[in-house]
C-alpha cells in the first residue's frame, strides 16, 4: 500500500492521517501490556511511575516484587497447580479433540454441522453458566473440589480450540494419502503415525497450546468447582486484585507476558512450518 507519486494533496493527507490513526490504535492495543513491565521493577509500593523511575535513577528500580513472589508459598503453590492442571487438561483436550477432528473432516461424517456446533459450544457458552452447571453436576457425582473435577472441566473448555485448529489443518489434507498408505499395506495405526500425524502435527500442537492457555488462564470455573488447595496463579491474582492491587501482581503479570511471548513465537513457527508442509503437498 505504498503511496504513488502522483496522488493529490488531499489523498496524501488522508494517507498519513490514516497511518497515524492506525498507529494510535496499535498503541492502545500494546501499551497497556508493556506498561506493567517497567512498573513491576518499582522500588516503592507505587502503581505509577515514581520520579526516580522517570529520571532512570537506579534507586527507583528493584526486583523486590519478584523476590516477594518467589518467597510467597501461595504463589509457588499457584504455579505448581496451574501447570499441573493445565498440562493434564491440555492432554485430554488434545487427544479427544484430535481424534474427533479426524472423524469430522471425513466427507461421509453424518450430522457433521450439528455435532460440530455441539462440540464448539463450550467456547461460546458464558463461563459463568458453565461454572454454575459444572459445580452442581460435579457435586452430584462427587468430583467437586478435586483435581480430577477441575482437570476434566478445563479439558471440556479446551476441546473446541483443538477441534477448530485441527479441522482447519485437515481441510488442506489430501484424504487419498490415507488410502494410498492402506493400499500399500500399512496398518491403520501405521498410517496414522507415519502419514497423518506428521502432516497435521502443527495444527495439533497449536490446538494443544490453545487448550493449555485456556486452562492456564481460567478463573471462573475453577472458582466454583475448586477450593483454595487447588488455587492457581490466575486465582491468586484475581483474589489479590479484588482486595488491593500490589506490585507483586505486576511482577507475576510480567512473567505471564513472558510466557505469552514464548507461546506466540512457538505458534508463529508452527504456522510457517505448516504452510511449508502444505506447499509441498499436491493439493
Amino acid at each position: 500500500m505504498a503511496l504513488p507519486a502522483h496522488v493529490e494533496p488531499l489523498e496524501r493527507a488522508w494517507f498519513y492521517t490514516y497511518r497515524f490513526i492506525c498507529g494510535l490504535i496499535l498503541f492502545f492495543l500494546i501499551a497497556p501490556i508493556l506498561i506493567i513491565i517497567p512498573l513491576s521493577f518499582n522500588a516503592g509500593f507505587y502503581l505509577s511511575f515514581s520520579k526516580e523511575m522517570l529520571s532512570l535513577d537506579p534507586a527507583g528500580f528493584s526486583i523486590q516484587w519478584y523476590q516477594d513472589f518467589y518467597n510467597d508459598q501461595k504463589w509457588i503453590d499457584g504455579v505448581k497447580n496451574s501447570f499441573f492442571i493445565a498440562i493434564f487438561a491440555a492432554v485430554i483436550s488434545t487427544t479427544l479433540g484430535t481424534i474427533a477432528a479426524l472423524g469430522l473432516s471425513r466427507p461421509e461424517m453424518p450430522y457433521r454441522k450439528l455435532i460440530m456446533a455441539l462440540l464448539i459450544s463450550p467456547m461460546i457458552v458464558p463461563l459463568i453458566v458453565s461454572a454454575l452447571g459444572m459445580y452442581f453436576f460435579l457435586v452430584k457425582i462427587g468430583l467437586a473440589s478435586t483435581y480430577t473435577g477441575i482437570i476434566v472441566s478445563h479439558a471440556v473448555l479446551g476441546t473446541p480450540f483443538v477441534v477448530i485448529t485441527v479441522t482447519a489443518t485437515l481441510s488442506g489434507f489430501d484424504q487419498s494419502l490415507i488410502r494410498a498408505g492402506l493400499n500399500l499395506g500399512a496398518t491403520p495405526s501405521k498410517v496414522f503415525f507415519k502419514i497423518i500425524m506428521p502432516l497435521i502435527l502443527p495444527g495439533v500442537i497449536s490446538g494443544a497450546l490453545f487448550a493449555f492457555i485456556t486452562s492456564f488462564d481460567e478463573v471462573v470455573v475453577i472458582n466454583f468447582v475448586g477450593t483454595t488447595v487447588q488455587q492457581t496463579i490466575p486465582q491468586v491474582m484475581f483474589r489479590g486484585l479484588r482486595e488491593n492491587i500490589s506490585p507483586t501482581i505486576l511482577a507475576v503479570a510480567t512473567i505471564l507476558v513472558g510466557i505469552s511471548v514464548a507461546l506466540l513465537v512457538t505458534m508463529e513457527l508452527l504456522r510457517r512450518r505448516s504452510e511449508r508442509l502444505r506447499g509441498m503437498s499436491p493439493t
Binding site: A100, G103, L104, P110, I115, P122, G133, L138, V152, V156
Partner: peptide, 25 residues
C-alpha cells in the same frame, strides 16, 4: 460409522461433562 466412531469419545465427554451440567443448572 467409522467416521462417527472417531467423534464418539469426544461427543460422550462433552455430553457428560458439559451438556449434563448445563441441564442440571
Amino acid at each position: 460409522r467409522q467416521a462417527f466412531m472417531l467423534v464418539l469419545p469426544l461427543l460422550v465427554f462433552i455430553f457428560v461433562l458439559f451438556i449434563m451440567p448445563i441441564a442440571t443448572m
